[in-house]
């Protein structure tokens, strides 16, 4: 079953009088449970495609469908609701709220989803356990290493049991051992939860973890560069 369907999507940014075409007609389907890498050089459109799939942005033309729902024309609040219900994000910068502890950061999407107290506590502790950070539950981000922060970010993205987890260069700010731990965690969680993972990267060590690779170049999917899903 397809989780994501991208149909002939373009995205043009206008800065002053200059127009930049970040995507120039991309079509792509991602099936449930895939572990897919979007690869390509800087400026190829990886991040833009992730943002459109993640309902953070809207295409200039074309359609993006998530779980059968066309999200291209949703308004601001509808997109926020879609993100909260169906999509988790992991960013290159660790993107934890610095004033909240690891526990509270993971709890935030559950609070927004209106999950009750007991269920919330159980879910947060379960997620912290999955990434071996139970002992760090009440540490704030500045008391965690980069790798630990990114693991917290990954389980926060999974907290509300989304259909899709999107990661933009998740290891770019990590050293090799921590990057390895993060990627292995993502692979493990993909297998354990069945959540569809899509991540953008240009790091060859990270690409090797992907079961499917989609290569972008100059805003288009490069011919013959889509490897079939595993």
């Amino acid at each position: 079953m397809e989780v994501v369907k991208v149909e002939n999507v373009t995205r043009t940014y206008k800065v002053g009088n200059t127009e930049t075409q970040a995507l120039r007609g991309v079509s792509l389907t991602i099936e449930n449970g895939e572990f897919t890498a979007l690869v390509g050089p800087s400026g190829s459109g990886k991040t833009t495609l992730l943002q459109l799939i993640g309902c953070l942005d809207q295409p200039t033309s074309g359609h993006v469908t998530i779980n059968g729902k066309d999200v291209s024309t949703l308004n601001r609040n509808q997109r926020a609701d879609m993100r909260r219900a169906s999509i988790g994000f992991v960013f290159q910068f660790f993107a934890l709220i610095p004033t909240l502890t690891a526990y509270e950061n993971i709890e935030m999407p559950l609070l927004l989803a209106g999950v009750n107290g007991t269920e919330r506590r159980n879910r947060v502790m379960e997620l912290l356990d999955i990434v071996d950070l139970k002992d760090h539950a009440h540490h704030r981000p500045d008391q965690l290493s980069g790798g630990q922060q990114q693991r917290v970010a990954i389980v926060r993205a999974l907290a509300s049991k989304p259909a899709l987890l999107l990661a933009d260069e998740p290891t770019a700010n990590l050293d090799t051992p921590n990057g390895k731990v993060v990627m292995e965690t993502m692979v493990r969680l993909n297998k354990a939860t069945g959540v569809t993972f899509v991540f953008a990267t240009h790091d060859p060590r990270v690409i090797s973890y992907a079961r499917r690779v989609v290569t972008l170049r100059d805003g288009l999917i490069a011919d013959g560069q889509v490897t079939p899903g595993a």
């Binding site: 993640g54 953070l56 601001r76 609040n77 926020a80 609701d81 993100r83 909260r84 219900a85 988790g88 994000f89 960013f91 993107a95 934890l96 709220i97 935030m108 999407p109 927004l112 989803a113 926060r156 993205a157 509300s160």
Partner: peptide
């Protein structure tokens, strides 16, 4: 941006 990304409404 992060809060918005995880679904916090305006």
């Amino acid at each position: 941006g992060v809060l918005s990304a995880i679904g916090m409404r305006s």
